[in-house]
C-alpha cells in the first residue's frame, strides 16, 4: 500500500492571507477608482503563481503602484489599521530602476509573506512600490508609529535583507506627518 507524502500535494500555508493591489494612474478617474484589487492568496504556491504571472515593477508605467497588504487592510492612510502607523521609506535613484527595483520588491514580498521580522511581523500592515519619473520608492507600512522596538526591528532586518550599505540611512515617517507635510520633505521619526 503506497501512502502519498503530504509534502508533495499540500500547499504550504502562510501565516496571513495577503491581497495584492494595483494602482493605475488614470487622471480621468478618482484616486479610489484607480486602486484595484488584483488577487488574494494564503499559500506559498499561490503567492508564486500570482507573482510569476504579473509584470515586474520596472515594467509599469509612471504613476503606477503595487501594494501588498494583509487581507482586510486597505492600502491607504485612512484605513483603521494604518491611520496610527507609518512607513519605512526607501527612495531609489533613476539608475536603480534597472539594477535594484525588481529584486528589492521581490525581497520585500518575501519578507512579508515569510513573516521575517519575528514578533515585529505583527506590526506589519503591508508594502508599497511607487514607480515614479523622479525616482521609484519602496515602503513597508506598520500599524503604530509609537511601537519603537517593533519599528526598529523591522527597519534593521529590512535593510539587511536588501543588503543596503550600513551608512545608507533609511527613514520612518508617520502617515500623519506624510499626509500633512507642508514642504516637500517629511521629517523622520526614526532612522536606521
Amino acid at each position: 500500500q503506497v501512502v502519498a507524502n503530504p509534502e508533495q500535494y499540500i500547499k504550504h500555508p502562510l501565516q496571513n492571507r495577503w491581497a495584492l493591489w494595483y494602482f493605475k494612474n488614470d487622471k480621468t478617474k478618482s484616486w479610489t477608482e484607480n486602486l484595484r484589487l488584483i488577487s488574494k492568496f494564503d499559500t506559498v504556491e499561490d503567492f508564486w503563481a500570482l507573482y510569476n504571472h504579473i509584470q515586474q515593477p520596472s515594467k509599469l508605467n509612471y504613476g503606477c503602484d503595487y501594494c501588498l497588504f494583509k487581507d482586510g487592510i486597505k492600502p491607504m492612510w485612512e484605513d483603521e489599521r494604518n491611520k496610527l502607523g507609518g512607513r519605512w521609506l526607501i527612495t531609489l535613484n533613476r539608475q536603480q530602476r534597472h539594477n535594484d527595483l525588481d529584486r528589492y520588491w521581490m525581497e520585500t514580498l518575501l519578507c512579508l509573506v515569510g513573516e521575517s521580522f519575528d514578533e515585529a511581523s505583527e506590526d506589519v500592515c503591508g508594502a508599497v512600490v511607487n514607480v515614479r519619473p523622479k525616482g521609484d520608492k519602496l515602503a513597508i507600512w506598520t500599524s503604530n508609529c509609537q511601537n519603537r522596538d517593533a519599528i526598529m526591528t523591522i527597519g534593521q532586518l529590512y535593510k539587511e535583507r536588501l543588503s543596503l550599505p550600513m551608512k545608507a540611512l533609511i527613514g520612518y515617517q508617520s502617515h500623519d506627518d506624510t499626509s500633512s507635510k507642508s514642504g516637500s520633505t517629511t521629517k523622520n521619526m526614526y532612522s536606521v
Binding site: H12, Q15, V44, F47, W48, L110, G114, E115, R161
Partner: peptide, 18 residues
C-alpha cells in the same frame, strides 16, 4: 501562539518546484 515563517531560501526553492 505559533507563527508560520518561511526563510527566503525555502520560498525561492518553492518557486522552482513543480
Amino acid at each position: 501562539g505559533t507563527r508560520i515563517i518561511y526563510d527566503r531560501k525555502f520560498l525561492l526553492d518553492c518557486r522552482n518546484s513543480p
